[in-house]
Simulated assay, not measured.
Amino acid sequence: MHYLLALILTISFFATSAHASNDHTCDNNTDCIEIGRWDIGIALGYGVKSNPLKDFDDIPLYAVPTIAYYGDRWFFDNGNIGYTVTEGENYTVNLVSTFSTDRAFFYRWDPSNIFHLSGNSVERATAPTGISIMESPAEPEIDTDALKNRNFTYLGGVEAFLYTRFGIVKASVTHDLFNVHNGTEAQLRWLYNIPLDSWNFEFAAVLDWKSEQVVDYYYGIRPSESPYWSEKYQAESALNQSIEFTGQYVLTENWNLLLVARYTDIADEIVDSPLLNTDYTTTYFVGAAYRF
């Protein structure tokens, strides 16, 4: 077996333990991707990804495409490209690239929204023109038109999986490849899977660390947006904490019912930004997933 963490909906915050197989034993296994074959699917349903940014709309969830390919070493997973450096019965080490997820709060058409349980609307979630973002009437306004300058970037680095009887532990470190913010992110994720006949339940706990450069680029204030807040708010590195749940029920070889929920406690260093309205974000999705 060639073990990898393949995502049933290919969402970084709702991972499902999976493996790629060299034989043809994946026919009725929703957690298996055969090596050398494309895995294509779509999840249809309804959900909402809350947006912690002030005056930005929550993101509705309707349809989530899935496209993945796993070879003996190279793999492609919804825009993420990786290479398996080494593996054993209880571990895997990959070189990997992935999307930055923070930009998704500013743009609905961000790639991480397309593949990571977000709606298909191309409307940008910018604050309406003329509406100011401020913490009180006495505080200076921020030019909301300038907030659109949070650019897309791609992260590259290394990830490692440790497979134990108590679940799967994933650790990763990635860095900005496009020199957009020159920041670094690290993640530690614990996953535990409980299969019960046609049911499959998975629980996860996640720690997401973001360097000062990442926090400043997405949540800091430029002088052109507000001279006052550019001095008032000073970004620092931050650690977000999340808990996740994924429930699946196998209907047929191709169809699964799906329930997904996530809660993220946003670090104080990010919450202190005048761009934020809440100190947490939630996501839920209820629907059905089809694999071609």
Rank of each mutant, 00 (worst) to 15 (best):
F152K: 04
L5D: 09
F75A: 04
I11E: 13
A146K: 14
E244S: 15
T16G: 05
Y218W: 11
D208I: 02
A125M: 07
L275G: 02
A15S: 13
R108P: 02
T129E: 12
Y219W: 13
W74E: 05
N240D: 15
D145R: 15
L95T: 07
N182P: 01
L44P: 00
D55H: 15
S112Q: 09
F292L: 12
A138L: 13
T101I: 11
N277A: 13
A125R: 12
R150I: 02
T184P: 02
N120E: 10
S121T: 15
E34R: 13
A6G: 10
I168K: 12
R37A: 10
Y219C: 09
D110F: 00
R222C: 03
V93Q: 01
A267H: 12
N179I: 03
F245S: 04
T98W: 04
A127V: 10
T153V: 01
P195S: 05
P128A: 05
Y107A: 07
A267V: 08
S211K: 06
Y263G: 10
G47L: 04
T16F: 01
L5A: 05
A235N: 04
D176V: 05
F166I: 12
A43F: 04
F13D: 12
F105C: 00
N254A: 14
E231V: 03
G183F: 06
H175I: 06
T283W: 01
L188V: 15
E212W: 01
C26T: 00
T281W: 11
T25W: 00
Y290E: 07
P111D: 05
E202M: 09
L275Q: 14
E89T: 13
F13T: 11
F178R: 11
K232L: 03
A204M: 12
F13S: 09
E269F: 05
A267D: 15
A104Q: 09
T126Q: 14
T101A: 02
A205G: 15
P223I: 10
W229R: 07
F166V: 12
I67S: 09
T25C: 07
F245H: 03
Y46M: 04
T25P: 01
L188A: 13
Y62K: 05
F203N: 08
L258T: 13
V173G: 14
R189L: 13
F201Q: 07
N94M: 11
L257D: 11
I114T: 14
A261E: 12
T184C: 02
F201S: 08
